[in-house]
Nucleic acid binder design. Structure first.
Lengths: 329, 329
DNA sequence: GACAAGATAGCAAGCGCTTTCACCTGCTTG
DNA sequence: CAAGCAGGTGAAAGCGCTTGCTATCTTGTC
């Protein structure tokens, strides 16, 4: 069955196309009787305005692009929910783009989104060359999440450095004397900041920093910690760059018969749901993923709806230490 | 900076608009020299064809809608990745829609997507009135995931009944004598099928079925099992309708000092990543979420690219029992 | 009773692209 | 040598909608 167009509706209702358009958009003057006729013609034909055509003339699509590394990662999937809930509340849809942490794929998506396909873009945890992102930002409103830069006016972020320091200081408080950091990949800005926070806090305590570089995935936490202990290194505290790697570390320790928290204290980062139910439950640094996503959209929406730049352009969330069994002593 | 249109490119290259269009689409005849001029004009103006305008005339958007209950649920986020990876490989983008298990929200999205916004739709785990969904299916190609119905020609699914029977028979094998089922919500078709499978397997064994109805979320598993044991019911096996509820059950048992698997065996459903690292690791029924998503897109793509209906319209995946510690005896 | 202002509706010009059709050139054919 | 055809290009007609402009008809006001 061919779909009805505005022309069909107009014909059926015996009015002009522009009149139908007015009742659809509730703009301009339309008489009561006319409106009724149009409405019922619309219903009879099961008319749905073509969003594409509409987008062409109005120059907006009520769609935004969400570019994240990986929805299958709990932190990002939670954040996505926040974005989507905020978007739907304002009548927007979201186009999902997984970069898989791959700068090429990220660039490809950025270019794709740039083709007047979306009204705005939210980029989360980007590792791309900042100039590419900026080029887009010149043409399409963009909000950066989790990567602060003086170059982006619109951003939501948490103080990763501060968060890392919270984690390390906590490990020190519970008496750790040799704390290793399982860092995220070094091309990730937030991984870098966390690493820096770790370094500062460790040096404050007069200790020697020690890093292992993972990739933010479960397996890398497992393997790095496994190798670490196999080598016979003496370590009594681990601060992982995210929860997934921390959980990997927990597993590796359990396999080797190392008792957590007694012989090894572990702290993660993100506070994903699994941290509740691993054994032992994981102490971690909370990042309010859902709220960050929600706010990112709101920021974008502000930018989209007002011509003048908003005053509220940056939104900072505070990382919080969440105490659980993995560091209880 | 105003974005360049195809007209600007044509003017700069000193050719007609139609010629530019030909080089963009690599269709028709274009001379070597002309092509070079157009290409360089495109580059100089940083031209990107407007996808909206293009969509209007070509009647396709290279975008599909993905309607799922909740991306924050690991099963669905994994499935989403599958869909997205398959889509990108074919040059498609995906519009993410979370229904939150809410039929109203689901209908709203279905209507939205129906506005010629997407070329096709993948609906996962729908609980909506089937007639609404079908009405869309008449206008937009649609693939159903996890809900089989003779009414939908295109579907990917697993045999939930069979999966549930696998789970229950396993519990019987390890010696359980009183097995309760924590079911998913009864308006979910897959929850119903699993429940039915449980029922059949239990009756085969000459036992009495016993149900509790949850909502597929962690908290409901926790609370139901907690209440169950608080009431003093004697139960030595639990088959949960999904892993999240099973993990909740595990936690409740741990809190009450009930030892798993010794005094209580637990089986989940889905095989989400967390099942590896809960304690004890959870025996579960594997559903290949990623592959299901991937296949769902491929099915849709087939349908989209060929006019004639494909032969391969249904795709069935086999549920598999995954043995872990939570039932080891 | 004349007239400005408000209500109501139609006409037509695009939005940026694709695609048909017509037209040109220069060769190959029977 | 007329006809046919592949190669190359442009003009123009839309795709389905919004919107500025115009034309008509009601009102209310002095």
């Amino acid at each position: 069955m061919e779909l009805a167009t505005i022309r069909d509706v107009a014909k059926r209702a015996g009015v002009a196309v522009s009149t139908v358009s007015r009742v659809i958009n509730q703009s301009g003057y339309v008489g009561g009787e006319t409106q009724r006729k149009v409405l019922s013609a619309m219903r009879e034909l099961n008319f749905q305005p073509n969003r594409i055509a509409r987008g062409l003339v109005s120059r907006q699509t009520s769609t935004i692009g969400l570019l994240i590394p990986d929805v299958a990662n709990p932190f990002f999937s939670e954040l996505s929910r926040g974005v989507e809930d905020a978007a739907i509340a304002r009548g927007y849809s979201v186009l999902l783009c997984n970069s898989d942490w791959n700068p090429n794929r990220e660039n490809m998506y950025i270019n794709l989104l740039n083709g007047r396909w979306v009204d705005g873009i939210i980029v989360v945890g980007s590792r791309s060359d900042i100039s590419v992102v900026q080029q887009v930002a010149a043409e399409t409103p963009l909000v950066m999440v989790d990567r602060r830069s003086s170059d982006f006016e619109f951003a939501v972020w948490t103080d990763n450095r501060q968060g890392a320091m919270l984690a390390v200081r906590h490990l020190l408080e519970v008496g750790c004397e040799r704390i290793v950091h399982i860092a995220g990949p070094m091309d990730s800005p937030s991984a870098q900041e966390r690493r820096r926070g770790y370094e500062v806090a460790i040096q404050e305590a007069g200790m020697e920093p020690m890093f292992l570089e993972g990739d933010f995935r479960y397996a890398s936490g497992f393997e790095l910690v496994n190798a670490l202990f196999q080598r016979g290194d003496v370590v009594d505290g681990i601060f992982a760059g995210n929860d997934l790697m921390a959980i990997g570390a927990l597993q590796a320790a359990a396999n080797l018969g190392i008792r957590v928290p007694d012989n090894l204290a572990v702290v993660g980062y993100d506070n994903i749901p699994s941290t509740h139910y691993v054994s032992p439950p994981l102490t971690t640094i909370d990042q309010p993923a859902y709220d960050m996503g929600y706010s990112a959209f709101e920021l974008l929406y502000d930018r989209l709806s007002k011509d003048s730049p908003t005053e509220n352009q940056q939104m900072k969330f505070e990382p919080k230490l969440v105490l659980r069994e993995s560091t209880r002593r």
